[in-house]
Amino acid sequence: MTDAAPAVLAEGLTKKFGTFTAVDHLDLAIAVGEVVGFIGPNGAGKSTTIRMLCALLRPSAGRAVVAGFDVVHAAEQVRAHIGYMSQKFSLYGDLTVAENLRFFAGIYHVPHALYDERRRFAISMAGLEGRENALVRTLAGGWKQRLALGCAILHRPPVLFLDEPTSGVEPQARRQFWELIHRLAAERVTILVSTHYMEEAEYCNRIALIDRGRLVALGSPSELRRHELGGTLVALACAPLGAALAALRDAPGVAEAAIFGDRVHVLLSTGGLAAADLPGFLAARGVHADVAQPIAASLEDVFVRLVAGRARAEPAP
């Protein structure tokens, strides 16, 4: 596998369950060593996509190549070259830390000469030194998840699929988990990680936003913030708020206006009013307004707008 070839490539990837289309013609290319965040509401198709890429589900249409192997025709090769953490915790709770590691080392054929070092690495990575003989079910969430990651990378796979690895884990442990992800990425491991925590999206090189089976947006967090909003976001303090909102919604060039506290956030598209015109425009309609301040959109703003926009355009069946 050369660096030029993507580590993960999906083309028109589709999965139907009966008449329900869980994933709809998804195209995605992930470069070697990239951390891509998979974001979307529950039921958007994140897990289904990841399972197809792990050769756990057979695509209904389209194709996917992972680590150079086709997920349909070379499923076993794919499995040998990936690490996978499913959404549900999937280590053996009635086995100890050391026993779980030994089991997965056996399953993945980790060479005996390397096993000792990798076991130590996994244990220190998970912060479980001295607790090797604890039953896994007695561990708290963060330790469990880090150990699961340690087991999933015992065979040093070039590609990692992590399905909501931090859900239900306390914030401190979540941050530690992301540090581990970046340590692995620094060693050129390619990682696709799904999450529903917006702040975690910021840790990714690129974000793939998926909604109702479709890839809605793809780009780095700053790219998404800049482009996907489709305009400039400004905030202005004004009174009375209700009249301001009503006036702005009908104003030329205003894509969206919403009240945030004592201010109004206005999304300006090109070709209409400029930010500087807003106080005058409002004054003419009996609303007092301060100077409009440009503000940075949060990723949440972007996602809400993208998903809400899609919902308006094509209501869910």
Partner: peptide, 13 residues
């Protein structure tokens, strides 16, 4: 039922 099988079948076993 416990979810461990999903992990197991994702390996080359």
């Amino acid at each position: 039922e416990r979810g461990t099988m999903e992990q197991l079948v994702s390996t080359p076993v």
